[in-house]
Write a protein that binds this DNA or RNA. Sequence first.
DNA 1: CTTGGAAAGTCAACAAGGCTGACTTAAACT
DNA 2: AGTTTAAGTCAGCCTTGTTGACTTTCCAAG
Lengths: 172, 172
Amino acid sequence: MAEPGTASSQRGESLLFLTDEQLRKGIEAMFFAYRGFTADPDRILEKYGYGRAHHRALHFIHRAPGTTVNNLLAILGVTKQSLNRVLRGLIADGLVESKVGKRDKRERHLYLTVIGEALEQELSDAQRARMREAYKIAGPEAVVGFRQVLEAMMDPEMHRHFAALKEGANDR
Amino acid sequence: MAEPGTASSQRGESLLFLTDEQLRKGIEAMFFAYRGFTADPDRILEKYGYGRAHHRALHFIHRAPGTTVNNLLAILGVTKQSLNRVLRGLIADGLVESKVGKRDKRERHLYLTVIGEALEQELSDAQRARMREAYKIAGPEAVVGFRQVLEAMMDPEMHRHFAALKEGANDR
DNA sequence: CTTGGAAAGTCAACAAGGCTGACTTAAACT
DNA sequence: AGTTTAAGTCAGCCTTGTTGACTTTCCAAG
C-alpha cells in the first residue's frame, strides 16, 4: 500500500497520510464498497419486483415499528410523493400495515406484517452476511474505526437520526 | 433477537459484538454516511446542470487519463448506452476529449480538458474536504480500519478495479 | 484477402425513483 | 371559526439505469 513511514501512527497529530491521493482512494473505496453493499439486496428485490426504495422503507419500518410517515420522510430524506408511491405498493401487497394514530388521528403509524417481516429478514440476512464477512476479514479494531469514520462523515442532521435509532425500545 | 456468542468462530473475544443489532447499525451507518458523502458534490453539480453520473465519469477519467470507453464501462458497471449519454454531454460541453487510439484505432481514449479538470477539482475538493474532516475526527487508526472494512465489502471484481487504480502510472 | 468479431456509437423505448406544484381531506390547535 | 398540520393524490418532468437492434470502423486470424 502507501508509504507506512509516516513515523508514529499513534499521535493524533500525524496527519501526514492525508494526501490528496490517499483521500481519493478513500473516495473510491466508498464508491466501490457501496456497490457491494447494495448488490445482494438488489438481486433479492428483483425477484419480487421491488427496488431499493422499497428496501429502505422496509428496513426503517422494521427498525422503528409504529413510526409515522413524517418521521420516515425525515429519515429517508425524500419527498412525500416519492415515499408514498413506494408505501402504497407495499401496503397493497400486504407487507406494510398503516394504522390510524390513537393520540393524533391525523397520523398513520407504520408496521410490517408477517410477510413484510419475512422479506425484510431475507434482505437483511444477505446484507448482514456480507457485512459480517467484511468485519471478520478486517478484524475488530478495524470495525471500530470504520464506524467512527462513517459517523464523522454524516451530515449532523442525519447523525441525529442515526443516533436516535438505538438498539430496541421504541415509542408507542 | 440478538443472542450474544452465537457460534464463536476463530478469535473468541473478537466476534462478540457481531450481533444482528451491531450489524444493522453498520448497515445504517453506511446508508447515512453515503448520503453525506455525495451531498456536497450533488450541490455543486446542480449549479452546472450535471448529475452524479457525470461526476463519476469525470472522477475516473481524471484518475486514469487516456482510459478507453470499455475500461470505463467496466469500472462504472453501467451499460454502454448509459455511459454514452453522459459522455456525449461532457464532450459537447468541452469537458472531456475523446481521441482515437494510435495502436488500435477502434478505441477512443478519454481525457479531461482544462475546464473538465477544473470542475473535477471543484467536486473533488468538496468531497475530499469532508473526508479529511471525518478522518481528522476519527483519527489515524480509524482510517486504516475504515479502509480495510470497505475493501473487504467490495465484490472481488470491483476490488480488482479498485486495486488497479493505484497512485499514478497509467497504461496508454 | 476475406471475414469474424471487437470497440464504439446511436436510436428507440421503457422503468425506477427522484423532483415540483397544486389540491383535498381530516383532525388538531388557537 | 379559522389556521395549521399530517397524509394522500394527481399530473408532469428529469436523471439514470435498462433492452434490443443496428451501423461503422477496424484488428486479426484463417
